[in-house]
Design a protein around this nucleic acid. Structure first.
Lengths: 217, 217
DNA sequence: GGTATAGAAATTGGCGCCAAAATTGGTTAC
DNA sequence: GTAACCAATTTTGGCGCCAATTTCTATACC
């Protein structure tokens, strides 16, 4: 965001957010301030401030006099978040295609390749990180920064643990293929194809036949 | 949000947010903690917490060791926020039309009427509040609660002071007419018309001829 | 043996004080 | 007369302690 506002506190919020996302803290788990203090080697006040920020981001939930616990996303909410992401990310597809330079496309392809490589050799957490990196780069191509921020924040609200995201290996490999298809759609300047692929990717619908992506919607 | 989490702090954040929105604190103005303490009759800690929350909402900006100042929205950002609102609010139009009961429509019409009445008799702040109320009711008809929350938060980020929102009386009256047109579109079950009206309303483009709203897009 | 109750341990959250940093105002030197 | 420097006041922000509340545990009673 800003140049370097709140280096300590900001980093703590980010670290905690990542840990929640990565499933280090299970959904519903109570976060005791003392444990967080020792785990992150932070002062009590920093922990409290970070927890407040995370509560505002809906990543944790605050119960007065009981503490903070990891937010358990219910199905309805998760579905609604997906829907908003669908709306925004498909809306951004146009500018993504328009802004992508050859260098961007190459970088994207490299990131997609890294994800592909990690399917065999990496842990689930590695995959998770690689996926984040790919989508961060992809999203960053959009021209509307506010939209990017919102989508990025929204991504943090979905089903948290990486495990729940890709239940089967088949799903992982489908995601992987979709990454490459998205890159190709961008390379081809085909915004419509990117929109359709993005929708499928978010909803994790069954795979379409890739060669049919140029007929009607 | 929650049932009644943080009654004091939450209210303080809301009150401060309203005051910033209403232009009590001018954009760029430094918010001294002592002043806020006395103004809101709050403890130092509550003020600090509220300022942090507002900083996360991008309503104020934090400069370490200097304090907090009201965020000055630049044009690019405002434009981008408008664009995102356009995307989301038009996307919500369908479910708004689908969910609206006769009672909802009556309530909306009443709120639109209140706005209309206040054009002559009310202050600019009254108008501002009435406008908020109308759009709150309208937005609440959407079925995606996450979308509603995001749009509502986004509304808080636009050009803050009510004065900047409606520069001329003609603009106010156009907004007023658009309110009624939106209600009629909902009553007629015409989602497309609502979408178009919403877009115009957000972008504050020149008025279309209302009788043409049933021909093609 | 199970349950209820009372006491103990632990955890949260509020409050005030004090140090570090910045702004303001005054003074001095050029 | 202007500019720079220094001191005094103001303001921010960090830290630790203590009270209020909750949870755990052990004991007694049914």
């Amino acid at each position: 965001m800003s140049v370097k506002a709140d280096p300590a506190s900001g980093n703590l919020v980010d670290r905690m957010a990542r840990d929640i996302q990565a499933g280090v803290f299970a959904p519903g788990m109570w976060l005791k301030q003392i444990d967080l203090e020792t785990r992150y080697e932070a002062k009590r006040m920093e922990v409290r401030r970070a927890l407040d920020q995370l509560a505002l981001k809906r990543l944790v939930r605050h119960v007065p006099n009981r503490g903070y616990h990891v937010h358990t996303p219910d199905n309805r909410q998760a579905e609604e978040v997906r829907e908003v992401r669908l709306i925004l990310e498909t809306a951004a597809a146009g500018s993504v295609v328009a802004n992508a330079t050859a260098a961007d496309i190459a970088a994207l392809r490299a990131l997609a390749q890294r994800f592909a490589d990690l399917i065999l050799e990496g842990t689930l957490l590695d995959l998770y990180e690689a996926n984040i990196a790919f989508h961060a780069k992809l999203l960053a191509l959009g021209s509307n920064r506010e939209l990017i921020n919102i989508v990025w924040e929204l991504r943090g609200r979905g089903p948290s643990a990486p495990v729940t995201q890709w239940k089967t290996r088949a799903r992982i490999e489908q995601s992987n293929r979709e990454h490459f298809h998205m890159v190709e759609a961008i390379a081809a300047g085909d915004a419509d194809a990117l929109r359709r692929l993005t929708a499928d990717h978010i909803l994790q619908t069954e795979e379409r036949q890739p060669t049919q992506r140029d007929d009607g919607a």
